[in-house]
Amino acid sequence: MSSMASERNLQPALDAIRVKFLASLETRLAELDALTTMIKSGDKGSRVWEEVRLRVHRIAGVAGSLGFPALGARSARLDTAIEQYIAEPSSADEATILAALDDLLDDIDAILEDGN
C-alpha cells in the first residue's frame, strides 16, 4: 500500500492496524488449520469449504492493504479457486485446492515466525 504510506498522518494508524492483523493471524491460522483437517478427514460438505473461503477471503481483503502483498495475492487466487469449486465441484481437483491451502497456511506460519 505504497500510496497509503505516503499520506502524512496515516502511517502510524496503519502500523497499529498491521499489529492487530498480525496478532489475529494466529487465530486465523488455527481456524483454517482445523477446517483443513476436517476436510482431509472426510468432511467434504460444501459448508466447510464455505467457512474456509470466508476466512481466506477476509485475509485476501486486508493483507495487501497492510503490507503483505504476496499473502494478499495468494489468498485472492485461492479465494477465487474455492469460489469456483463450491459453485461447480467438478471444475477443480480438491487435492489441488487443498495443496494451495496448505501453501497459504505455510505462508502465514512464516509471517508469524518472522514476526513482522
Partner: peptide, 17 residues
C-alpha cells in the same frame, strides 16, 4: 459494512484521513 473488524478499522482510518 464488512464482516472483518480489521477491514472496518482500516476503512474507518482511511476515511478519516
Amino acid at each position: 459494512v464488512d464482516d472483518d473488524p480489521i477491514i472496518l478499522e482500516l476503512v474507518t482510518t482511511v476515511l478519516s484521513d
